[in-house]
Each structure stands twice: as C-alpha cells, then as structure tokens.
Design a protein around this nucleic acid. Structure first.
Lengths: 335, 335
DNA sequence: CTGTTAGCGCCTTCAC
DNA sequence: GTGAAGGCGCTAACAG
C-alpha cells in the first residue's frame, strides 16, 4: 500500500501515464470525447488515476472555475422534525445537483448567525438558504455584498426572495378542525389558550391571525390574556400552561401550541394531570412530531411540507429574480 | 451601494489603500505586528477592506496553504436527539477551532455513504468523523488512501481509531434499574422482550450482552425468542411488539427497546392499549427523547453523552495515533 | 489528437 | 517597513 503523504495530482498521473496534464484533465472531466482524444489514451489515463488513488482537488478546481460546488444553508438546530427535515431535504436536493451541501446550525444566536454566514461566504458557497434565524436581513445584506444569491426559508424578509409555509391558512384549517372536535365533545369553543413562539415572528403573527379569523367566523373573540408567546424554550411553555391552569383551576378546552418545542414543554405539564383532565381538552400544534402523535391526549399537528419548501427554494436560485424579493407561499399538511 | 459582480480581492484593497498586496495580506492575517508594519498603514488597510466588504477567498487560501479549514462528519440522519446532538456538538467544537463544519447525512445507504465521503475528501476536509454508517471500513480506507485522518464515532472498526459509548455498561445499569422497578411493582423479572436495532451492529451486540449479564446475575436466562432485532424502522418495532403481544395475550413485564426509532414504533402500539396494560410493564430504551419521557407509561432511557463522544474524537485527531486503531469507550448517562 | 501557457486569489520567502 | 516573484492544483484557450 502506497503511503505517500502528498495526494496525487494530475501531474503525477501525467508522469505515470506519459500524457500531458491537459490530456489528463480532459479525460478526468469526461470531455475527452469532445476533444477527440484516443480512447486508448483515455482508458490508460483513467487506469493510472485509479491506481494512484487520485481524487480531484475541489479547492483548486473551484479556484480555477470560480465555482465552489458548495451549497450552503443555515438553520437554528436539528432538534425537531421540521428543521431535521429541512436539512435532509436540502442535502438530498443538493446532491441531486452534484453540489456538496453545507448546513450549519446557529442556535438562534445572532452572533453565531453572522459568523456562520461569513464562514460560508468565505467558502464561496454558490448560494445560501437561510432558515429560522432571528432576523434574515443582515445576513441577506452580507450575501448581496458578497454577490451571492440567498433565499429566506420559512421566514420572510424584505432583502431577499422568501419561501414560506402557509401559516395563516394552516392555522385556519387547524382551528376549524379543533372547533369541530370541541363541538363534537360538547366542550365550549370560546375557551382557548394560545402559547409558545415569539410574538414578533412572522409565523406566530400569521398563525394568530388565522386562528382569530376562524374563531371570528364562529362568533368567538378572545381577550389578549388568552395569548402568551414568550419564546421557544419548552420550559417557558410549561410554565405558561401551568400558570394558566392555576388561574382557571382546570385546562382550557382548546390549547393552541405554537411550535413543537412548546408542545414538548406542555407535555411535561400535561403528564402531571389525570385522564379526566386530558379528556376535557383538545390540542392543536405546529409542527409535527412522531412521539407527540402517540400521546394519550388528543393532539392534532400541522406538518409543514419541507420538501416543497426546499424544492421551491432551489427553483428560486436557478431562476433568480435579480433585484426583486418575491414571497412564495407553500401549503402545509394537516395530520 | 456597490454592486460589483466580482468579489474584491487583496489586490483591490492594495489598489485602494495604496499599499502592496503583501502588506494587505499580512495585515489581514494579523501578522502585521510581527512584520513591523506601521499601525497607521494597518488600520488604513483594514478600513479599506471593510469598506470594500472584503472577505478572504478560502478556496485560494486553502490551495496555497494546503489547509482547507473544513471539518467533515457523516451521519445517517438528524431525526433523533442522538444524531442531532452529535451534529450540533460537532459544529460547536469545529467552530471553536475556527473550522467550518460540514456534516452530511447518508440515510444509512452504503452508496450514499461512499459518494458523500468522496465528496468530502475532494473538498480536502482536514479530517472526517464517521457515525452510524453501515460499515465504516471501506470509508476508512478511502480516507487513508487520501491521506486524511478519520475517526469512527459510536461504531468501532478495525481500520481507524474509534470512539464509542459504553453500551455494555449502560445496558447493565439500565437493566439493573428495570429489574428493581419490576420487583418493586411485584412484576416478574424473567418476562422480557428485547427488540429493535440490528443484530450485527456492535451497539446491539454490546447491549444484549450487558442485558444478559445483568439478568444472569439475577438468575434469569432468556430464550432466543425473547430477542428480535430486525432493523431500525419504527414500523418494524411496532409490528414485532404487536406480534409478541398477540402471542402472550398481554405485554411482557419488561420491554427493552434497542434504539429510539424502535421506541417510536412501540409507542404507536402502546397507544392502542389501556392504562392497566401500561401499569403491568416497565420499559427501558436507548436513547433519549424528550417526548418519550412524558409518556403515560414507565420508560427509562439512556442518554448517550454526545458532547464527550465528540470531544474525545477531536482530541483523537489532534493527537493522532498514526498506524494504530485504538478503541476509546465513553460512559453514558441514565435518565 | 496532444502539449504549452497563463492565470484563478492567496501566502511566503527574499530582496530592497 | 514594504514590494516583487513564485507557486499551490487545476482548466481553458491556443498552438502545434
């Protein structure tokens, strides 16, 4: 076994195969047909390359072609099915296009978001997808400054094209479904608690709007106290729900959990209750989790269509609306 | 706002700041102190760089220095807390070292595993961590052929240094704990079903050994029929459990679920049962999931120490045991 | 059909 | 203190 320290280059292959570097390069790129290189030469070169264990140095190729072959994506973390799905769809689609996916998590920390974006841009990624950050605009600015295309995924921003889920529509559908369940169970339809997420976030705002719109159609209007959106941490949701329970002396009939981390927290509190308590409530949640679906209480979740989100984003970078920042809305699915 | 197509280079900065490319390079690398460049020159260069929105081209730097600044990791997916945790710990640690993390998922598909590894090697990653693949050895060979260090994370292999969780020890602890719970509840300690995972996998083998060893200490020996390890898919686990339930007409007293996807499937079947059924069983599982922890039945999970796994792996690439392939075992935590 | 040449953007000796 | 020159590995004109 050769234990050469240095990796073989096309010059090594040229040496061994007694061809010129150019010939080797063309053969390796499969362009030898076009340049009418003798098949025997080609196969000989290929054989030598194989024996040397040659692999292109993408760095050098990238420098020469000024195409890195890298596709970048930033997202907050992988700890739930939504972001995990985004990451996996992104990777699959990138591979499909012979790009190397680089996805990096930011923990929703603006300073990490900036650093990561900088790193990715320095690596000359061919485009950047931005998901679940605090505010996409500064990152969008960094990209345009570097002349790199970017698209905001699932959170809109004025500085770049955005692809988002139909949060408003899904919230309406979900609420409608829950109202039906409450009525069927003989439970009141005007006794709700909406919690989790961040009020300023577009998705939260849209979901609240959809929720309210559907309730309004049923003649229900909720007081501000029925809404508590104070962050993504499960712990917060758990406390908020416990607090609400303390105030009412029971669970609200309808629980609208804005975000799966919130449901995680809520589950912690619900686990302390009895079956009777569970029977008197119906739960709606964004997004979807396989374990949550097996809980002993009634919970209906919305699964965002991550494949569509990613596919649409890729279509967008292919056909980039230079200068414009359209907002594309993708429907979600109910579970 | 400048909308130059081409990204600025150090030559652009040299032009604007009226210094030479060398000076610019040294300033940008923070080596100007060492080269006794005038502070005013330095700050002026820095200012110009900022105004131009300059960012180093890592491709070019990598080519020149033959250091890519990239750290690679492959894993099967992000859909559970174990792999999500591995990915996030890896990223954090890589960032700590000013490396750009590239983690790619393979869906446990050997052909994707090979392709991904090839891609990562072509990108000149400085080292590669390999987790949750089918068989690490071919990938290890690719790495050594390319002269790139690699370490197997949580699955050992003879071709590279490996860092794994103490599956045997944790399984023993977990089993001991479950036996205690069964005894306390007046349930039999010789009525078990062990399912999920893949028999050939090292982790499964180790867990079975630990499980059996602890039971043996309690004078219990299980028939082969008590073990069913036929894959990682939740669906399979669900079927196996349902089947076993059908055979016995009830749940086994002790359920040992090998892998969180298995628990996901098991949850699906358990959800169809009554509270009485739940009360007559105690569940043990690898690994940990926040929702599973809130289930209405008794489940004890092992949380693998992903931070330690990653930290140990990084230590290993720093101080690489050239030629040797040690096996380092890291303890896990019970929950 | 194949070889020569000139960079891609950056860093690092070595002169001045 | 600063600048000039060469080359990392690869590719795409051009010449032969």
């Amino acid at each position: 076994m050769k234990t050469t320290k240095r990796k073989p280059t096309i010059y090594d292959i040229a040496m061994v195969s007694a061809a010129s570097p150019t010939t080797v390069s063309m053969v390796l790129n499969g362009q030898w047909k076009k340049h009418r290189i003798k098949p025997e030469t080609a196969s000989h070169v290929l054989k030598c390359a194989g024996e040397l264990g040659y692999a292109v140095n993408q760095k050098a190729r990238a420098l020469r072609l000024s195409r890195s072959g890298l596709a970048g994506m930033v997202l907050p973390h992988y700890r739930n099915r939504f972001f995990a799905g985004l990451a996996e769809s992104f990777e699959a689609e990138a591979r499909e296009r012979n790009l190397c996916p680089i996805v990096v998590s930011t923990q929703r920390d603006p300073s990490i978001e900036a650093r990561v974006t900088e790193t990715l841009l320095a690596q000359q990624v061919e485009f950047l997808f931005i998901a679940g950050v605090n505010d996409p605009s500064p990152l969008n600015d960094m990209c345009t400054a570097a002349g790199i295309r970017c698209v905001n995924v699932d959170l809109p921003g004025p500085k770049a094209p955005s692809v988002i889920s139909d949060n408003r529509g899904s919230a309406m559908e979900l609420t409608e479904l829950l109202v039906g369940k409450l009525q069927a169970a003989g439970l009141p339809i005007d006794d709700w608690f909406f919690f989790g997420g961040v009020r300023e976030d577009n998705s939260t705002r849209e979901r609240i709007e959809g929720f309210n719109a559907t309730l309004a159609r049923h003649g229900v209007s909720l007081p501000p106290s029925a809404f508590r959106c104070e962050g993504y941490a499960p712990r917060i949701a758990e406390q908020l729900l416990a607090e609400r329970y303390g105030q009412l002396g029971r669970l609200p009939a309808g629980l609208f959990v804005n975000g799966i981390p919130g449901l995680e927290g809520a589950a912690g509190f619900l686990a302390t209750l009895s079956k009777e308590a569970w029977n008197s409530t119906r739960i709606a949640a964004f997004d979807w989790d396989p374990f949550a679906a097996q809980m002993p209480y009634d919970v209906t979740m919305v699964r965002q269509d991550v494949e569509a989100l990613i596919a649409t984003s890729f279509a967008l970078v292919d056909d980039y609306p230079e200068g414009e920042t359209p907002l594309i809305v993708v429907p979600a699915k109910l579970r």
